[in-house]
Amino acid sequence: MIDDPVNKHYKFTIPREDLMTPGHSACPGCGEPLALRYLLKALGPRTVINLPAGCAAIIPGVWPRYSLKVPLVDHAFECTAAVSSGIRAALDKKGVEDVTVVGWAGDGGTVDIGLQALSGAVDRSTDFLYVMYDNEAYMNTGIQCSGATPCGAWTTTTPGGKHIQKRHDKKPIMEMMIANGIVYGGTVSVAYPEDFIRTIRRAKSIKGPKFIHAYSPCPSGWRMDPRKAIEVSRLAVRTGMFPLYEFQEGRYRFTKEIKKRKPVEEYLRLQGRFKHLTPADVAEVQALVDREYEELEAKVEAGRR
């Protein structure tokens, strides 16, 4: 299953230092602490994070404990990007320029309830990095459908069964943000840490509003074996369900080229949330993924010209 070349020289392929301590409260196999871990490896200690309600509010530990080694500001659900704007404004007023402000929110906190604040902050050209860790539903409240839940997935509010409750796919948040005016956009997956870190560092080097869409598996909510978390994340990329690409200055570029996409069925069948899908449903999902992937390929191609 491994498509990364095995490093035979006992070399660490990502920075060794962690700005995060074990003992955090993530479920076993959760992708979110991995994403945070990679993020902090990429950004280093001169970082301020702010985050809303969600799994991310629980994972760093409950008072008086704290598992990160950078400052963190907590706030309500819908205001991530607005709080980032405020933090950046205050840092600017104090003349602090070399600190990266990171708004870190889940998919529901981004594409649904936090969309207004995010759009405003991008519109104001706030110099910050917004990371949406996408576990494809409201997981902290117990697996409710969000605007980022994929077509056909079971959640407690899309009980599924034979009928696919949600026929439309995830909100195209990257496209929405590009239209809104971000200076850099990138997708990252916890299955590709080297690419994850490279993309975050690239984003950090650019001034202005940056948007990162981070794929973050949720074994509890996706009804799968925790040990499969990375395997599933890798399949999401290799099937084209979650392509890795970046956007800058009007051009799209794949950061992980997939020469021959695997059938989505390989991805779907590892997860209980898709187990009710009939072959016809799977075909429908495949058609959807094909269409979206081809659209993206066309954009990447246009950027090459």
Binding site: C79, A82, Q116, A117, G120
Partner: peptide
């Protein structure tokens, strides 16, 4: 800062105030 709502205005101030 011109915000997109009063909710965001208060949110931004909370963030800014934390920084001092």
């Amino acid at each position: 800062m011109m915000m997109e709502s009063e909710h965001s205005a208060m949110s931004a101030l909370i963030g800014a105030s934390y920084v001092g």
